[in-house]
Design a protein around this nucleic acid. Structure first.
Lengths: 155, 155
DNA sequence: TCTTTTAGTTCGTAAGACTGACCAATATAG
DNA sequence: CTATATTGGTCAGTCTTACGAACTAAAAGA
């Protein structure tokens, strides 16, 4: 029966997840600056990515839910991207309270580039840990997000 | 040849890493409050964990390096924990510039509890994604941190 | 119709981390 | 053995990302 706890000295997953996430964010910051997107920040991915190939757009609350942040935070991110011309905020035809957020041409262009960067990063990782292991991690994270950590934040 | 890019719609690993890390942090915050550690915050793990079972202590710079934050940030964390009585800062006998950071009895007590919490969390995850996959993820993250993301932040 | 829920906004605040500038002690090169 | 470079830490200021409370307006339900 091997325990779930690894050899002593190996940090817990929680700690490693945070560190890798943090490192990734720095990497993204560097790339964004190098690419000349002066008005974009890593956090804006929480808006850009879910809108990818969704011409009909998403509501603010939907965006907040999939990106797992509060609607207040999402509202701020969207406002920034709106001023900078990456997304539009238009009233929803079916619900006068709601707003539909959509990518502009500029937003799609940025999306294309940042996704290429993300994909390239994953390929690099695959060189080190193997494509198979990348896939395992991806699946594991996805299950954790949808099944295990789903209830968290639901009210 | 299966591509490293998963089915369209599955978020990139970077995004998922950040979300899982974020969810973990919230979970930890909740636990810390429930456990009555009023003067502790999730970020303090970056100090407590590396000091675990190191009676000789570590230097501030070493701590900063293993936790991958700047020495300034680490200095602030240590100061907070010092005031609250979880660690001590003592001049290093071999180097008059350096400080050795050590856990106090209180720090060790907290360490024991938070590690138990972390371990329990991993066990929960193992129930959902399987102990084997937990191990795979742990290994993958460790390799990423030591091999792939190591150069980042060096200097 | 009255009440509750849902969608979003505004305002204020906190956590966590970074950069730049600096001092003091130790190594290293001539 | 001095002059210089490097290393260990601190101080001060700032930025990014996020949260909560309180509120308005529209929609749904009883």
């Amino acid at each position: 029966m091997s325990s779930t706890r690894a050899e002593p000295g190996l940090p817990f997953m929680g700690a490693m997840l945070r560190m890798v996430g943090h490192a990734m964010q720095q990497r993204l910051t560097t790339w964004i600056e190098a690419s000349g997107y002066k008005d974009i920040q890593p956090a804006h991915s929480a808006v850009i990515q879910p809108l990818w190939q969704r011409p009909e757009g998403l509501r603010l609350t939907e965006l907040a839910k999939v990106s797992r942040i509060t609607k207040q935070s999402m509202s701020a991110l969207v406002s920034e991207l709106e001023s900078a011309g990456y997304v539009t905020r238009a009233p929803d035809a079916n619900d006068a309270r709601a707003m539909r957020i959509r990518l502009t041409a500029r937003g799609r262009r940025y999306g294309t580039e940042v996704r290429a960067f993300a994909q390239q990063t994953e390929s690099e990782w695959a060189e080190h840990i193997g494509a198979q292991r990348v896939e395992q991690v991806r699946e594991a994270l996805h299950i954790l997000l949808t099944k295990v950590l789903a209830e968290q934040g639901e009210q």
